[in-house]
C-alpha cells in the first residue's frame, strides 16, 4: 500500500517547522517517527498534501532532570524513554509503559511527542502521562504555552494543538518513590491494549489513567478520590469505569471493557500499594 501523493519538506529546527506549518495551514501534517501517521496514510485514512519532516530536529530529543520534574524532548524515541536511567530513577512508570508500545522495531522509530500529539486513546503513553499529571509544552509562531495533559485530549485523535503549533516538550513530575504498575490487556503480542491501566500511589495520593476506555484517554478521578478518603483497593477499583465512556468494537463490548478496567485497576493499585 502506497500513500497518496504529497509534497515533502524537511525542517531543521522547531522554528522552521512552525513557519512551514503556518505557510501550508491545515493541509500540512508533521512527520516525526511516522509510526502513527504513515500507516494511516497508507490506508488512505489520512491524506495530507504536505508533510513537514521534523525527524532531524535533533535538539528535541533529550531526557533531562529539571528539579521537580523530568523534561522530555518531544522527539525522544520510545526506545530512549524505555532505557533512560533518569526516567528509571524518577518516573519508572513512564519508562515501563514505553516498553509496552508496539514492538522493538516500532520503538526504534516512534517518538513520545508523536504518540501524544496523535491523541489515540488506545495508545499507552497518553493515559500514562495523564495519570502522572504531566504538562505538555507547545510552541507556535508567538512563543510557547503549557497545556496540562488533562486539557490536551479533546476528542478521538484530536488534541488542543493549533494547526501551526508543535509539541516540543513533555514535563512529568517526579514520582518521589511512589509505587506504580502498568497493566495492559491484549490478545496478541505487540497489539494495542483492549484496556490498559497506568497507576501510581503514595499513601493517600494516587493517579490512575485508563487506556482505550473512551474517545480520549481517561483519568479515573473517582478511584483516586476514594483512595484519598481511605477506601481500600477493592472498593476504589470498583469505581474504575465511573469516569469512562467506552465504545464497543470487535475486541470487546462496553460491559467487558468496564469489567477489565475494574479488574486491571485493582491489580495495578494492589501492586502500587505493596
Amino acid at each position: 500500500m502506497i500513500p497518496a501523493a504529497f509534497d515533502y519538506v524537511r525542517a531543521s529546527s522547531a522554528e522552521e517547522a512552525i513557519a512551514l506549518l503556518g505557510q501550508h495551514g491545515d493541509e500540512a501534517k508533521l512527520l516525526a517517527g511516522g509510526h502513527s501517521l504513515v500507516p494511516l496514510m497508507k490506508l488512505r485514512l489520512a491524506q495530507p498534501s504536505v508533510l513537514v519532516d521534523i525527524g532531524r530536529v535533533n535538539d528535541l530529543s533529550y531526557v533531562r532532570d529539571a528539579g521537580d520534574h523530568i523534561a522530555i524532548g518531544a522527539l525522544t524515541r520510545h526506545m530512549d524513554v524505555e532505557n533512560s536511567p533518569v526516567l528509571a530513577e524518577h518516573v519508572p512508570l513512564l519508562a515501563h509503559a514505553a516498553s509496552h508500545v508496539g514492538d522493538p522495531q516500532v520503538r526504534h522509530r516512534g517518538t513520545i511527542g508523536g504518540s501524544l500529539a496523535h491523541a489515540d486513546p488506545a495508545s499507552d503513553l497518553p493515559a500514562t502521562t495523564l495519570a502522572l499529571g504531566a504538562t505538555y509544552v507547545a510552541q507556535g509562531p508567538n512563543g510557547t504555552r503549557e497545556i496540562a495533559a488533562a486539557d490536551f485530549y479533546q476528542g478521538y485523535l484530536t488534541s488542543a494543538l493549533e494547526a501551526d503549533e508543535l509539541l516540543t516538550e513533555i514535563r512529568v513530575p517526579k514520582m518521589n518513590g511512589a509505587g506504580w504498575s502498568f497493566q495492559k490487556f491484549n490478545r496478541r503480542a505487540q497489539d494495542w491494549a483492549i484496556v490498559g491501566v497506568a497507576a501510581w500511589r503514595r499513601g493517600t495520593e494516587s493517579g490512575v489513567g485508563l487506556v482505550n476506555m473512551g474517545s480520549v484517554p481517561v483519568l479515573a478521578a473517582a478511584v483516586s478520590a476514594a483512595i484519598a478518603s481511605g477506601a481500600d483497593v477493592a472498593d476504589a477499583a470498583a469505581l474504575a469505569a465511573d469516569d469512562a465512556d467506552p465504545q464497543a468494537d470487535l475486541n470487546a463490548s462496553v460491559e467487558y471493557r468496564q469489567h477489565l478496567a475494574r479488574v486491571l485497576t485493582g491489580r495495578a493499585l494492589s501492586a502500587a500499594s505493596a
Partner: peptide, 19 residues
C-alpha cells in the same frame, strides 16, 4: 520487512525512503 537503519531494526514498510 525488517532491516537495519543506522544499526537498529526497523520495519521498512513504515519508513519513507526520504526519511
Amino acid at each position: 520487512c525488517s532491516i537495519h537503519l543506522d544499526g537498529e531494526a526497523v520495519k521498512s514498510c513504515t519508513v519513507l525512503a526520504v526519511q
